[in-house]
Design a binder for these strands. Structure first.
Lengths: 189, 189
DNA sequence: GCAGATTAGTCATTTTCTTGATTATGATGC
DNA sequence: GCATCATAATCAAGAAAATGACTAATCTGC
C-alpha cells in the first residue's frame, strides 16, 4: 500500500483524470513518486471501490471522454493515518550503481558512456525543477515564500527532487572523470 | 532481472554465503542495492541453477554449515552484457516525500517528528560510510587512491551512498525547520 | 490526405518484493 | 543455568510493480 497514498496526495490539489495523473507520475515531474499509467488506472479503480476517491464523468467533444477524480473525506482520513504511521526507510536502488561497482573489473568504456548520458538527463531535470520552483514561488524569494505561502508541499518535495538530481549529476560526472583518467593511465586491462 | 546483477556484482569480490550477502544487502552497507535474506537465497538458487554462480559446502564445527558462492565465467559474461545494456532511469520513491507533499494540508506534527528521525538515521549512515571509505583508501588521500588502487568500484558506489545520505539529511532538517516555524507563526491549522 | 503524435483508457501476465513463520546450533550475557 | 543473540538457511503467501499488447478518437505536421 504505497502508490495508494501517492495517488491520494497528488489528488489533494484538485481533480485529475487517470491520464493526467499518469503524465505527472511519469517522466520528470514525478518529484515524489513514479508509476506507470496502468498502475494508476488500477489504483484509481481500487481507491474508488473503497470510497477513498470519487470520479465524475466529463463528456468532451474534441477528445475522448474522461473521468476526473477527487479525494473523499474517507480518503483524506486515510492520508492522515498514513502520515502519522512510521515510514519505511528509503533505499537507493539503481542499475548504474551496480555497473559502477563492477566497472573496474569488466570494462569501463560502456559504463562511462552511461554515466555521461545520465549526467545529461539529470541536468535536464535540474533545469525543469528549477523552473517549477520559480513558477511556484513567483516573485517572492524562497525563505519568504516558505514562510507565507498557503501551500508549500509540492515546493518542498520538488526541492528534494532538485537536490537528488544535482547529487546524481555531480557523482556521475566525477566518476566518469575518474574512470576515464584511469583508462588512459592504467592503460592495461 | 535486477537483483540478479547486484548479487553477481557483490560476489565479484570473493566468496560469500547467502547469510553474509544478506547482511551486506541489509541495513547500512547496502550502498548500491538493498534486499532481504529470502530474496537473496532465492536469487542464489536461481543463479546456481543457471550456472552463473557456483557454491561449495563448507563444513563448520562451531557454526551451522554454510555454502560459499562465487561467480562463474558465465556469470561474469552475464555481468558484462548487463553493464553494456541501457540502464533504466532511477526514481525517488519514498514514503516520507509523500507525507511532506501533504503535510501542510493534514497536520504537520507527526511529519516533523519523522523528518527528524530520518535525519538522525541518515547521520548514522553518513558516519558509517565515512568510516568505510577511510578504511578502503587507507593512508592515501582520495585523489591518490582513485588514481592508483586496483579495485575502486566499491569505493565509488559508497561515495554515492554518502552523498545521497548527506542530501537526505540536509533536506530533512531544512524541511523540519520550515514546517516547525510555520507551526508557530501560522498558528491556525 | 495521410502518417504520426496526443488524449483517454483497459486487460492480462509475469516478475519482484515484502511479510511472516520455522528450524537448528552454538556463543554470549547476566 | 537460562535467556537471548548470532549464524545459517528455508518455505509459503500475498502485495506491488513492471511489461506488453490493444482500442479509439482527434489533432498536427508536412
Amino acid at each position: 500500500m504505497a502508490l495508494r497514498h501517492a495517488v491520494l496526495a497528488a489528488l489533494l490539489d484538485g481533480e485529475y483524470s487517470g491520464y493526467q495523473l499518469a503524465k505527472a507520475f511519469d517522466v520528470g515531474v514525478a518529484n515524489f513518486w513514479h508509476a506507470l499509467p496502468q498502475q494508476l488506472y488500477a489504483e484509481l479503480a481500487k481507491l474508488e471501490k473503497e470510497g477513498l476517491v470519487a470520479g465524475r464523468q466529463v463528456v468532451q467533444e474534441s477528445r475522448p471522454n474522461k473521468r476526473l477524480f477527487h479525494v473523499t473525506d474517507a480518503g483524506r482520513a486515510e492520508l492522515e493515518e498514513f502520515a502519522a504511521a512510521v515510514s519505511k526507510p528509503s533505499f537507493i536502488r539503481d542499475d548504474l550503481l551496480v555497473k559502477v561497482q563492477v566497472a573496474d573489473r569488466i570494462g569501463t568504456a560502456p559504463v562511462i558512456e552511461q554515466l555521461e548520458k545520465r549526467a545529461a538527463e539529470a541536468e535536464a531535470k535540474i533545469e525543469l525543477f528549477g523552473k517549477l520552483l520559480r513558477q511556484m514561488r513567483g516573485d517572492a524569494d524562497e525563505e519568504e515564500f516558505l514562510r507565507r505561502a498557503e501551500r508549500i508541499g509540492p515546493y518542498l518535495t520538488c526541492l528534494r527532487g532538485l537536490a537528488f538530481e544535482q547529487g546524481h549529476r555531480d557523482w556521475c560526472l566525477r566518476i566518469a572523470t575518474v574512470l576515464r583518467e584511469r583508462q588512459t593511465t592504467h592503460a592495461a586491462r
